[in-house]
């Protein structure tokens, strides 16, 4: 599959090669350096995951699994692994940046040819997706980097008060 936008991806990929980051995805080094109300951020300020040595995940990763499975699995298969219908996001996130993901989810994309009709819907108006888009991104980022395995994370940090407030405001 062709990542969006190509130029940005190419730049990112080249950067990674030059500076030789051991672990990286379309948004760079996923290592969490700061946290804000239970949400972790990498050094660029991009949302990221945090997984403890005992497998305990941050709350966003956990919610991301729940919301991915409810909203994305129907096409992209369980655990980001892809299906006969949609591509494996686990692979897509190796090249797509956070911004690419937001753009694609919100506005959709189409790849329609004589033999294939791949259409991603524009989900920008779907609160069930957009209110949780950071969580979904964080979950997929963790999957893409092999930080968590398949299935529901066994253990997670408690629900942050800020998450609850933002959820209520967003879902209405």
């Amino acid at each position: 599959m062709t990542p969006l936008p190509r130029a940005l991806t190419a730049i990112c990929a080249t950067t990674f090669l030059l500076i030789g980051i051991a672990r990286a995805d379309g948004s760079g080094d996923p290592t969490a350096v700061t946290s804000e109300d239970g949400k972790y951020l990498d050094k660029e300020g991009t949302p990221t995951y945090k997984v403890d040595p005992d497998g305990k995940v941050d709350f966003y990763t956990y919610v991301g699994f729940i919301r991915y499975s409810a909203n994305c699995l129907r096409c992209h298969g369980p655990d980001g692994l892809g299906s006969t219908y949609g591509p494996a996001l686990l692979n897509s996130l190796k090249t797509l940046s956070y911004g690419d993901v937001l753009m694609t989810v919100a506005s959709g994309r189409q790849k329609v040819s004589a033999s294939q009709d791949l259409v991603m819907p524009a989900l920008g108006a779907d609160k069930n997706v957009m209110c949780y888009i950071d969580a979904i991104y964080i979950y997929l980022r963790a999957r893409s980097n092999g930080a968590i395995g398949r299935g529901r994370p066994e253990n997670h940090e408690p629900k942050p008060a800020a998450f609850r407030a933002a959820e209520d405001e967003c879902m209405g």
């Binding site: 948004s27 951020l41 660029e44 300020g45 991009t46 949302p47 940046s97 956070y98 911004g99 937001l102 753009m103 989810v105 919100a106 506005s107 959709g108 524009a122 989900l123 920008g124 108006a125 779907d126 609160k127 957009m130 209110c131 888009i133 950071d134 933002a166 959820e167 405001e169 967003c170």
Partner: peptide, 22 residues
Amino acid sequence: MKRMSLKGLLTIGTLLSSALMT
């Protein structure tokens, strides 16, 4: 990448999708 609020994202998404779905 600067983070956005959920509400901000939702607004952008709505605009993008409505433009594309026209």
